[in-house]
Design a protein around this nucleic acid. Structure first.
Lengths: 225, 225
DNA sequence: CCGTACGTTAATGTATACATTGGTTTATTG
DNA sequence: CAATAAACCAATGTATACATTAACGTACGG
């Protein structure tokens, strides 16, 4: 009789959300192994829903299920980051290309412009968290406006895999001034209906981002995070 | 005591493989609802592993878990196919672009050339199954040679979602003669190290494929499969 | 006759009991 | 003392029991 309030979300879903959040928040170290028992006791949820949550997280690429050793938070290596950026580059460029062929309504364009100006403001105030948040909003808007639900899902999935690394590197990197200009240019290309330009601007944006990141990881000798 | 041979693969894995195979083979109708109980009895595997298999299949986009109505084989609409082709276009083009920048070994090039010639032979013999198989081998080789495991996984995932539709349309479409030439051109662009050309050839190849398919589905009034 | 409300039921969501297995520890022997 | 083998143990894989809920049917009232 520990029940007080009946939340209507299934426990399996809750377990999934909580564990996922903890991974993204860097509550676990990379490669850390966690026993089912620990999760069950921490979450106060029985094994069945916890196991289902783990299966989902494995499919999502955030953990590995080690047959008799619980789960393991997947470490992200430089190669992994290169893979992830390659995919994001391809899919987001595709989204950018597509947007340029559509006649975006003013309200939709605003969804791209607002985060861009927010990025500028955040940079002026040296608020990197706010900058990262706005950057994330921009990229999210890009794939949402594409109207391709599957594309959006895949981008979010890999964005999630890269999240931990972004978290660590946010304060190590140089001030990301170029990014904002790229976004402005992209919005203009979309407005102008120039799909090839839009795609190539975003492609180059992502490639630069990737190279900066890999250089940074190399500089700080991060083999994996 | 029905146990005779001890296979070492976990039952959850077996359930996943069997159900997945049945879906891809069109053993179920689109949108068909299947009760957990039915799966449990058919597979002679208890609920826990079967449920885990279903969770995996849902993440893979092949089924939906309907809270109190078992699972539902996800029907594929024209819009779904458009989404899937858009993603395949972006990712495979990216792979093609990347391959052109590398100096592929002869053995690796062969992995692309062999399926291409197999496609020609199959066409000459009017063997559409063999043609489809070779076509699949070509696309698989493309993403495998990219070296990007995640990219490969995503492509295979969506290839799986589209599989049922391809199966139905294989014998309805015109003889796919253009496809083979596209593949030859792509191999040549890769050999020549022309990454932009490689990407655009493959992009156009996929766009044509998509348009042919959508026209076909429209012609036969397929709303969903 | 129709609509609503309640009860039954069947299916899933959840918890737990049982089976299996791989690793570790201990005991025995050379 | 060291090496090997057997037995134990802890963790997961699997099965099943129990709880919950939504849908359907029935009965009662208007």
């Amino acid at each position: 009789m520990t029940k007080t309030i009946t939340t209507n979300i299934p426990l399996a879903e809750k377990a999934y959300q909580v564990i996922r959040e903890q991974i993204l928040n860097n509550s676990y170290r990379a490669g850390e192994q966690i026993l089912e028992k620990t999760l069950v006791e921490t979450l106060a949820i029985s094994r069945t829903p916890v196991r289902e949550a783990c299966v989902r997280l494995e499919k999502e690429g955030l953990i590995e299920i080690k047959p008799r050793h619980g789960i393991r938070v997947k470490p992200i290596s430089l190669e992994d980051m290169a893979e992830i950026y390659e995919i994001l580059t391809a899919l987001e460029s595709e989204a950018a290309r597509k947007l340029a062929t559509q006649n975006l309504k003013a309200a939709d364009l605003k969804k791209l412009v607002t985060p861009t100006t927010a990025m500028e403001k955040a940079l002026a105030k040296n608020d990197l968290e706010a900058w990262a948040e706005a950057d994330e909003a921009f990229h999210l808007a890009l794939v949402e406006l594409s109207g391709n639900q599957r594309l959006k899902q895949v981008v979010l999935q890999f964005w999630g895999q890269a999240h931990r690394v972004r978290y660590f590197t946010l304060h190590l990197r140089d001030k990301p001034t170029g990014s904002t200009q790229d976004h402005i240019d992209l919005v203009n290309a979309i407005k102008a209906g120039n799909s090839e330009l839009a795609a190539s601007i975003h492609r180059n944006h992502r490639i630069e981002g990737k190279e900066n990141l890999l250089k940074l990881l190399d500089k700080y000798r991060f083999v994996q995070l």
